[in-house]
Amino acid sequence: MNMLSGFAISQADGRPMYRQVMEQIKQRIAIGDWQPEQKIPSIREFAVALRVSVITIKRAYMELERDGVIVTMQGKGCFVAADPNLGTRLHGQELDEHLVEAARLAVLAGLELEDLLDLLREAYERIPRSPT
């Protein structure tokens, strides 16, 4: 299967393009489409497939490498990192970012912690879950 099919940059998304690319790569790794230690497309292949500039993908790869999500081996190319707990770690990181954002908005709106917790509980209950 083509590793790059399904990647897309949204013009309506306010975030920088390299962030969109990072997020989509993390998703693929989190759900296991991209396996640990698997070779991933070169920066240039990626850029051509997504029709974005080389520097955008380079930036996304650099940040992912800094976060320990991917590794670059000189002369061999780029790979998904070997860490087996990657999926959970990525989710944890993303969840943390959203929680901080929610807390910030709550403070802006003058909500107490208790109010925020109530809202979170409600939101949690609204998410459909498959029976286990």
Partner: peptide
């Protein structure tokens, strides 16, 4: 500017 933002390195 949208085309430029998408394609350019510099």
């Amino acid at each position: 500017t949208r085309d430029v933002e998408q394609l350019s390195d510099r």
